[in-house]
């Protein structure tokens, strides 16, 4: 399985990841190499095997419905790139 430069650009857009034009080729090569590695998996029969998402078969613990967090806006927004009137600013959102 090999990828094309176009595939890489498409994935990069999906991940909103700017990559330099001159690096596209090396990413294409690296990713294709990784996919090559993965073909080993297809040689193993996994019919009827349950996918394993967590190391331990545990169930989700539930939290009591209580308000435990207080307003901490000033601290949180002190590290924000751009805020005004308590809002985070971003380039215009077009609906």
């Amino acid at each position: 399985m090999t990828l094309t430069a176009d595939d890489v650009k498409k994935i990069a857009y999906l991940a909103r990841l700017g990559i330099d034009q001159q690096d596209v080729e090396s990413y294409t090569k690296d990713l294709s190499g990784m996919l090559e590695l993965m073909t080993q998996m297809s040689e193993t029969n996994t019919d009827g095997v349950l996918p394993m998402a967590h190391p331990m078969d545990q169930s989700q613990r539930l939290r009591v419905d209580e308000v435990t967090e207080q307003d901490n806006r000033n601290n949180f927004q002190a590290i924000a790139p751009q805020v005004e009137e308590g809002l985070y600013l971003v380039p215009k959102v077009i609906e």
Partner: peptide, 14 residues
């Protein structure tokens, strides 16, 4: 082909 397959392999390893 990738994600689910890898999760199944994960169980086999485990």
């Amino acid at each position: 082909a990738y994600y689910i397959k890898a999760q199944k392999i994960r169980r086999l390893i485990s």
